[in-house]
Design a protein around this nucleic acid. Structure first.
Lengths: 199, 199
DNA sequence: AAAAAGATCTGACAATTGTCACCTCACATC
DNA sequence: GATGTGAGGTGACAATTGTCAGATCTTTTT
């Protein structure tokens, strides 16, 4: 099967290309450093599978998956990512992505997932699928914005100015968010929300 | 030459192992997922070169480099990282690291750097070396640790317990660090220090 | 040996942050 | 027209955080 590898870090891109090149049954037919480059290669020579990272500049792997779903629906998309954020998983599943690979998983997981995808299967760890289900972001829009700014080190007064709210209201939002996320303070809350992909 | 690869993401670790395995003259004699595991492998079977990522949980690649410099000074250390933070580069050079590889560089850069290191050379991009020059980390060791924990959302009391210091002393350290970094509070200070590679 | 320089600690104080109960106003619904 | 409901606000209070001026007790320097 023909695979196109999309990953922004050249060293990792090359290393994964080399890894897959060793597998019998897999031909690496292209390497792209972001979604735009990948689309150009796909137009010329559509592969069977596009294996793409999610976090990339210019165009993320999920945006690439959306584009492929729209214009090249016969191509299977497999995404890789460092972070098992429930938001990512949910979007990927909605976009018809065939496999969801975490970079913490061993190389054998990747190769066997690619083989399974060629047989028409979907590959996703059950626990990740569950994460997508209970991806219920409890934060309101204002809470989200307040927590994000707080996570960048802004003081309450500045956050209030930025959001055009009173200082007290901002404190209320932050307090709410801290409670909802079971955090101990605003920094902790920001950390938790980031980790879930909510801010 | 015998190379030990240290990288926390299994997929990337395996892929780099596979890449280096293809090179004639390179034997990948071990794969470790963090500094602790690497040290255990080194004790049994010291390689010629340790190729390590910097950003890792438990023990960072730079902490590993320090440990190797102290106890296994004949081993060459090569670090890889996504971020060209001036603090990383400076610390790496101070720790006797032989080559500094960015993950955005192509795979050939890595393989040729490893070959050069075996010939006793040092490999670092001139522009990165320059970054190291104008990097003056003003933080003391204790301040660094305190700020890092604060950046993770820990309250003063917990930080004090972790560092075996009194609460007041921790507040002093944080206050000092905030002043030195021209920050407005502990979160802001942590953000600045992270970006420079000081924590 | 005296002086200087550290690191840690303490206590006091002000500023910021976190929590909570309750207020107001607009706007949709019954 | 009465009633909810939700966004935004206020004020009060406690807890945490930030600042600073010493106090102790090592080390290091002179």
């Amino acid at each position: 099967m023909n695979v196109l590898v999309v990953e922004d870090q050249a060293l990792v891109r090359g290393a994964i290309g080399s890894l897959l090149g060793l597998e019998s049954g897999i031909d690496v037919v292209g390497l792209a450093e972001h979604g735009q480059a990948a689309l150009a290669l796909i137009a010329n020579n559509p592969p069977d599978i596009v294996l793409t990272d999610i976090e990339m500049p210019e165009m993320t792997g999920l945006e690439l998956a959306a584009e492929i779903q729209r214009h090249h629906s016969q191509i299977h998309v497999v995404v890789m990512t460092t972070f098992s954020k429930s938001g990512y998983i949910k979007r990927a599943l909605d976009l018809g992505v065939k496999a969801f690979i975490l970079k913490e998983q061993p190389t054998e997981y990747l190769t066997s997932a690619l083989a399974a995808v060629m047989q028409g299967k979907r590959v996703i760890e059950p626990e990740l699928a569950l994460m997508a289900l209970d991806d219920n972001d409890p934060l309101s829009d204002k809470e989200r914005q307040a927590i994000r700014l707080a996570g960048e080190g802004m003081a309450t007064k500045l956050i209030a100015q930025r959001l055009c709210l009173s200082e007290g209201t901002v404190r209320n939002y932050l307090s709410e968010a801290i409670a909802k996320l079971n955090a101990t303070n605003r920094i902790d809350a920001a950390r938790i929300a980031k980790q879930k992909g909510w801010i």
